[in-house]
């Protein structure tokens, strides 16, 4: 009797050890191949500091959207990147660009008090940020909460902006500047897209057109930033497309008249009086040209 039990036990232990033997540590070896023996510093030709300096010149979508709203431009949901498109974004390149795009969309919706419909976009921004490993800067929970009511628009905007700024800074700090630049680019292109596709009448139209024209300055900065990462074929393509856009923008001429600004003290703070002026020469045709290229670039980005 006891012998039977012993045999049983042995048999079973055999089976068990079979199972246990099926450990799979080989896969780990594969992965650790990715670890490099020496520290590779990105020989990019541009310092993090320089990137940080320049990237702040890409305007915040808040400004763009605020302008649009101030100009009585009607809100148009169709202009936005459909939130379902997020399924299409798999690589860091696609994700960072569209993080910017959705960020702008989010701001746009908030400024027009469409806070409740922002939930899907909040989600998208959060997901893309997580995928890029910068999600910890995006206070999703708070934003979600605040979005329940349109009284909190200002807070929402503030937190969103802060989130993006922090993400950008972090990326630069972590030596992932290219991603930061792409995010900024996405933000910018979406703002431009909305502005160029919006329906409006003068005199608001002129204001908006002016603002569009002024983006010429930003474009140059972006080109400069992008030019450092052209070894990446995707970025290179982006760069080339932006060059084409630049050609359109070359039709815009901005004239400046500079006067000496003066500082005044008013109520314990400094107020500047500046008589300088700038004038943007832009017309419908140019805008159309810009719009065409912007459409092309933007739609390529959002797939």
């Amino acid at each position: 009797m006891a012998k039977k039990n012993v045999i049983l036990l042995l048999l079973i232990s055999g089976v068990v050890s079979l199972f246990v033997m099926s450990c799979a540590p080989e896969k780990r070896e594969e992965a650790t191949d990715l670890l490099t023996d020496t520290m590779i510093t990105e020989d990019v030709g541009i310092t993090d500091e320089a990137v940080g300096e320049m990237i702040s010149s890409v305007p915040n979508p808040v400004e763009m959207s605020a302008l649009l709203q101030k100009s009585d431009v009607v809100y148009s949901q169709d202009l936005l990147n459909p939130d379902s498109n997020i399924d299409n974004y798999n690589t860091n390149f696609e994700r960072s660009l569209n993080l910017g795009v959705y960020g702008t969309d989010l701001v746009y919706m908030n400024i027009y008090d469409r806070t409740v419909s922002t939930l899907a976009y909040l989600r998208n921004v959060k997901d893309l940020a997580d995928d890029l490993r910068i999600g910890q800067f995006f206070d999703y929970e708070t934003l979600n909460r605040l979005s329940e009511s349109s009284r909190n628009v200002d807070s929402v905007l503030y937190i969103t902006n802060r989130g993006f700024d922090n993400m950008t800074r972090y990326l630069i700090d972590q030596n992932r500047s290219s991603i930061a630049i792409l995010v900024a680019y996405g933000t910018w292109i979406e703002s431009l897209y909305i502005s160029t596709n919006v329906q409006t009448k003068p005199p608001n139209k002129d204001l908006i057109y002016q603002r569009i024209g002024e983006q010429k300055i930003v474009l140059d900065n972006l080109l400069l930033l992008l030019s450092n990462f052209r070894n990446d074929p995707n970025i290179d393509e982006l760069f080339m497309d932006l060059m084409d856009l630049k050609k359109e923008f070359d039709n815009v001429s901005i004239t400046y008249v500079y006067k000496e600004p003066k500082m005044k003290e008013v109520d314990g703070s400094i107020v500047v009086v500046d008589k300088s002026r700038s004038e943007v020469n832009i017309n419908q045709e140019i805008v159309d040209g810009i719009a065409r290229q912007v459409n092309y670039i933007r739609n390529k980005i959002i797939k």
Binding site: M39, T41, T91, F93, R133, Q174, N175, N234
Partner: peptide, 23 residues
Amino acid sequence: NEFYRSQFNSVNEAIDGIIQKRT
């Protein structure tokens, strides 16, 4: 921190490269 950061970056990019190839 620097070590991990750069390693992370390279691994992250490598993964991104794999995904790029697949798409």
